[in-house]
Amino acid sequence: MIRFTATSKRYPGGYEALSNVNFYIPAGQMAFLTGHSGAGKSTLLKLIALLERPSRGQVFINNQNLARISRRRIPYFRRNIGIIFQDHQLLFDRTVFDNVALPLIIAGQPRGEVDRRVRAALDKVGLLGKEKAYPITLSGGEQQRVGIARAVVNKPPLLLADEPTGNLDPTLSTEIMRIFEDFSQVGVTVLVASHDLALISSLPYRRLTLEQGRLSTDSDPAE
C-alpha cells in the first residue's frame, strides 16, 4: 500500500528532513512511525498525502507513483486517504455533523447517503447524539474523535494520523488507538505518527523509527 524508495526530502533552505528512506507497508497493516520531535515524521506523512513532494526518490501509494499525479488530480487522490491531526483541524463555525459530512459533500454524495454515512462514522467513534453540537463545546478527546470520524466517513483504504493523541491523557489515548485498531481490523491500512513511546510499546504493531530523517529501526513484533 505504501512504498518509499530511496526517498529524500530537503526543504527550501537546505534542511534535509528525510534522507534515503526505504520501506513498504502492505495493505491492511497497522504501523507506528516514531522518533523524536523533528525526526521527520510529519514530513513523511506529508509526502504520502502529497502535501509535499520528495526531492529525491519515489513514493508509491497502492502501486501508483505519486510523482505522476498532477496538481489537478491531487484532490481526487486525497479523497482516498483519511488524515488525522493533533490539532483536530475542525471547522468551529459548523456542527459536528457538518464537519464530518464535509468529505462526502466534497465528493458529491447525495443527501441520504451523507446522512447515513455520517451517522455510521459518528457511531463508530462513539459520538452519535452529538451531531448538532459545535466542536467548541466538546472535550479534547471528543474533538479528536470528530476528526477521526471525518477522516473515515469516506471509507478510505488508508488512514494517516499525525500525533493523534498528543494532547490527550493516557486513557483517552488508549481509546483513540483502539478506534484505529478497529479500522485496521476491517482492512484499512493505518499509519500513526507518534512520539508517545509508552503508548506505542504497549501495542503489538510494527514500528518504524526515524532518527534525523533516517529510518533507523523497523521492528515488527508479529515476525
Partner: peptide, 14 residues
C-alpha cells in the same frame, strides 16, 4: 483560510 486548508486537505477541488 483555515477552512480552505481543511477542504484542500480532505480532497476539495479548486
Amino acid at each position: 483560510r483555515d477552512e480552505i486548508v481543511i477542504i484542500k486537505l480532505i480532497g476539495g477541488t479548486d
